[in-house]
Structures are given as structure tokens and as C-alpha cells.
Nucleic acid binder design. Sequence first.
DNA 1: GACCAGGCACATC
DNA 2: GATGTGCATGGT
Length: 216
Amino acid sequence: MGQADKLISMYDTMLDALGPSHWWPGDTPFEIAIGAILTQNTNWKNVEKAITNLKNNGLLSAKAMYALDPSEMAELIRPAGYYNIKTKRIRNFLEFIKVEAGFDLLQLKKYSLNDLRPKILRVNGIGPETADSILLYALDFTTFVVDAYTGRMMNRHGLSYEGIDYHELQALFMDVLPEDVALYNEYHALIVRVGKDWCKKSKGLCETCPLQSYLD
DNA sequence: GACCAGGCACATC
DNA sequence: GATGTGCATGGT
């Protein structure tokens, strides 16, 4: 089987086994974007607590968060860890939304993906995964999200190698998959779900993994 | 108590 | 250009 067929087949297998993911977990594009920053190297359960704190204080809008005192923001997002650096990163992103979109995140859709992605990547604290998560899940742009689970899964299946660059790994998908935002959305979601339950860092529970039949 | 979790920037060589 | 380190909470 060729690379393209294999990646499509693995997608079908995961979807059959797990059902649709309905990602990203979040009510609004803005909440999704903030969640993308908060979940950097952090368990999603901790992020949920931080988002709940923000929501309970009516702060899940760009204007409200922009007006919030940084020390108060840090206290509210504390459960998500790295709360001081993440406060700075969120504030950098809010400044970006203000300047580029007048506090209306969806106005960013006035740009093409190729114009917008480098702009977002210039925000200090937003790297390729966070940028692609915002672009795909908050703004519906067709860009593939690569994360630690993606690399691990591809390595264990012999489709990648240790130390591969983010964009090289991303290209493995984007060069062969049809340009379909719903497909990109669901594929990354399925990889994370398989990663959380089976393709863990220390112990791979490969015997029961939905992708078990694809292992050598 | 060690290890891990949906990264990123920065210092140092 | 490669490699190492700080950032921090909460669950297993």
C-alpha cells in the first residue's frame, strides 16, 4: 500500500472504531483559540479547569480578557500550569487580535491561509502547533495540526523518524490528503484520542489499539 | 516520588 | 545550527 492509501486507510479505521470526535472541545472560536494556548505541553483536564474559571467570570471574549489585569488572569488560569508565561502569551495574542481584527477573531478570515499563518507565528508564544490549531479549529482553514501524538504514532508505524521537523511531518499528511477541512479536523482529533488511550509515551498499549493491524 | 501531559522561547556552545 | 533548560499544575 502507498503512503496516501495507508494514511487514508488508517483514518477510516480510527473513525470506524471510535466514531466522530466533534472537535475542538470548545463553544466558540475564541474559546478554542485560548484553549490552544493553554494546552501547550499540558493535560487537557487542567486546561478545562482554567477555561471554566474564565467562563465563570465572563471573560471568554477578546475585549474582556484584554481589559483583565495580568495578575488576575494568571490566577484564573493557574490550574493549566505555566500560568505566568501563558498569561503573557495570551496577552500577546489578544494584542494581535486587537490590531489585526478589531477584537473580532473571525475577522482574521479576511486573510488567506498563506498570509495569516506567518502573521500568527510572529506572535511570541505561538508556535506551529498552536497556530495550526487556531487556524484549523477556530477559523476553519485547511492546515494539518501536528503534535507529540502525531509524531509518536507515525514513528511507531514506520512512517516517520525520530527528530523529524514539524513541517516535514505536516507535509507527510498535506502532500497526500485531499484538501478537506473536515478531514483535517477529524484526523488530528482521532490521532489525539488514539494517543491518549493507546499510543502513550512510555507504554504503548498496542495489543488493543485500533491501529494494531498496521504495525509491522 | 518519578513520570507524563494536545509547546515554545531563549541561552549557550 | 544543534542542544539544553525554564516554565508549573494535577493525574497516574
